[in-house]
Design a protein around this nucleic acid. Sequence first.
DNA 1: TTAAGTGCAAATATTTTGCTGTCAC
DNA 2: GTGACAGCAAAATATTTGCACTTAA
Lengths: 152, 152
Amino acid sequence: MPLPETEAPGRLQAALTSRGLRLTRQRRTILGVVETAKQHLDATQILRHARRLDPGIDRVTVYRTLKLLKRYGLVDELDLMHMQGEKHFYERRPTRDHIHMACLRCGKIIEFESDLFERLKGQIERDCHFHIVISRLEVGGYCAGCRSNSRE
Amino acid sequence: MPLPETEAPGRLQAALTSRGLRLTRQRRTILGVVETAKQHLDATQILRHARRLDPGIDRVTVYRTLKLLKRYGLVDELDLMHMQGEKHFYERRPTRDHIHMACLRCGKIIEFESDLFERLKGQIERDCHFHIVISRLEVGGYCAGCRSNSRE
DNA sequence: TTAAGTGCAAATATTTTGCTGTCAC
DNA sequence: GTGACAGCAAAATATTTGCACTTAA
């Protein structure tokens, strides 16, 4: 089942200004790219997309903006099990955490929400007296499609 | 509560040869470093430790060996929430998965095993028809000690 | 013996930093 | 107007590749 797609567009932008940060043309562009991306993008892909909208934009600005957004908890950084080298991928911080499943055969990334995951985080907080700010669960393996294909 | 420490030493080495890979002096050294490490080490730290035992060992060999061990599921690669830059850390693949908690204040890494985590993985496998080969749950937040200190 | 593995050099990829000019507020 | 930010150049860090020599099996 697919996750609820894009919420109010511009949510990240509002979050930025409410924190007293400047909403520059470049940040607006980069935010737009991350917010509307159909898949998870790495820094180079984000740069490429951003340049289509604003050709002058610099790679450094992308890195600086991503770092900022990460620091303020507006985007999450993922590894996706490092299937394509050691890049990092970015996505808008969801309202509810989800799990990333990476198929080691076809490379597809599947997202999944789970109450059990929420309960697990609750257990960690209670049992370890640890206050969770951010969490990331990634699994690698074989998706339904690849499992049936491999039986052929 | 601490996790059960080192099992039979040389377990990784046996695993390598049983897969038809050559057990070179360098690999033995690097394996030893990872197996006996008290904390999670990144590639540079592994190189430094390995060179104490075998000064001629090359950085490239460390990278190649880590990649190999990762591919064969003998070591796991961690980000530890990227608190110290974008390095990657390595640990021997445990018999039972554990969660890594990284304190954003003091930098301490706490490990935690949980039946709920095992159940969650079971749920993912069933509900998504996804066969899990490897999983990684990392959380960032504030540990018990830092939470009480910040109250002072 | 010989194919797999190592070291060395160099390339590539990724991310950060210093500085100057510019723009959001 | 002014301090935060962007662009440019360059450095720092992280990882991979090609090739000739070495060594485990």
